[in-house]
Design a protein around this nucleic acid. Structure first.
Lengths: 215, 215
DNA sequence: GTGAAACTTTGCAGATCGTGCAATAATAGG
DNA sequence: CCTATTATTGCACGATCTGCAAAGTTTCAC
């Protein structure tokens, strides 16, 4: 049960192999036959395990298709990137680039998964649930970086906006079938954020000007 | 089948009553007993209809709990608000305020629903799916307002950020049990957005971040 | 190697979900 | 009152997901 076993043990290897087999089968079959007419039974059969075993690994076929680690940046990495950055937005930009870099090695797989998501709204829930978790991590990091409380408006909004920005970039990357690298879309998005979302400026005097609190 | 009947017909009234009875029962029972141990059968029984009839109205208990029109601003209203506004962000701010206003009359109910959402992640999917639709409407409006294409980065990002901002505001409103009006949180969020998300500037000696272009 | 402990796989029963279908009941409109 | 339309309901069916206990596999100490 220690970390040594986690790497070399036969038991652990078999578990990982099974999990991977289920994930691969699910992804493959979903692409081939479509999500609606795909059953857990078929996935299990393709991976050579019982249906019951499938549910020992994944709680639904959607989970099996998406697998883990959609937002493959862990808490410590985020914290490190945030504290090294020149300002908050740069820190979040760093996280975005780390995400893009982590995605690169399995580019085709990730692209497939996101294209499936666009096609089958049933998958969106899972994605958003993870994005939610991811945003919590970002919010904590932003709060730590700025000395604000994690339940202040600023870190929450900043994290939500950054998460949404990354989601937008990935979506545009997917829509373009990955023609441009993900980094390109991240740059585009964070460039706009850096410019205050205001390339189309005010026509005249306007709305709420002050953040009701800032520090 | 004409509009007259839609208002006075007995049939239409009964349908609405049934739908409302199911929604109310679902909300009530979810609050009382929790979502996990609540079955469609119980909801149907509480509303005095068969289970089959339940599924004629809602496709799942989650749908029944949330009901319709979480983001109760329709396409034309958004378009009107956007074209009247001084700039894009002001337009989106107007949409946010319209949303808050639409929420006000059924304040308690809406608050209950969002609190349930915080408690039961199973409800999030539905919400995000609707937010997704809402953001599409926003993106179209932003594109129309700025003369950009709907699949350009700017309208997509702007819509996503605004949608996320409204979500953040509602979440904060919910977390505070509605102590402050929803408008207050919308103001806070859009104030931060207006300020370019940069109340916490660079650590270095440089001044406030500015939009590198505006026009 | 042997045996016990720990863990995984599996089948089975059962609750719930969600849909298609056809019979029944209620309403609308002449 | 009669007919067309539409809503409700029961039934059957396949799929999802969980708990439980039996059977098989891996680990580890001796």
């Amino acid at each position: 049960m220690d970390d040594t076993e986690a790497q070399c043990g036969l038991r652990e290897r078999k578990k990982r192999a099974t999990r991977r087999a289920l994930h691969d089968a699910a992804l493959q079959l979903a692409l081939e036959r479509g999500l609606e007419h795909l059953t857990v039974e078929e996935i299990s059969a393709a991976a050579d395990v019982s249906v019951r075993t499938f549910f020992n690994y994944f709680s639904s076929k959607e989970q099996a298709i998406l697998g883990d680690n959609i937002f493959a940046v862990d808490e410590e990495q985020v914290a490190a990137l945030m504290s090294d950055a020149a300002d908050v937005l740069d820190g979040l930009y760093g996280v975005a680039m780390a995400l893009a870099a982590a995605t690169a090695p399995r580019r085709e797989q990730v692209l497939m998964r996101w294209q499936l998501m666009e096609r089958y709204p049933a998958l969106l829930p899972q994605v958003f649930a993870r994005l939610e978790e991811f945003e919590k991590v970002l919010a904590s990091a932003v709060a730590a970086r700025t000395g604000t409380a994690p339940d202040d408006a600023y870190p929450q909004l900043m994290a939500a906006v950054a998460g949404t920005g990354m989601r937008t970039a990935v979506r545009r990357w997917t829509a373009g079938h990955g023609d441009h690298p993900l980094e390109h879309h991240m740059n585009e998005v964070f460039g706009l954020l850096r410019d205050g979302l205001a390339p189309y400026g005010p026509r005249g005097p306007s709305g709420p000007r002050e953040a009701s609190k800032a520090g």
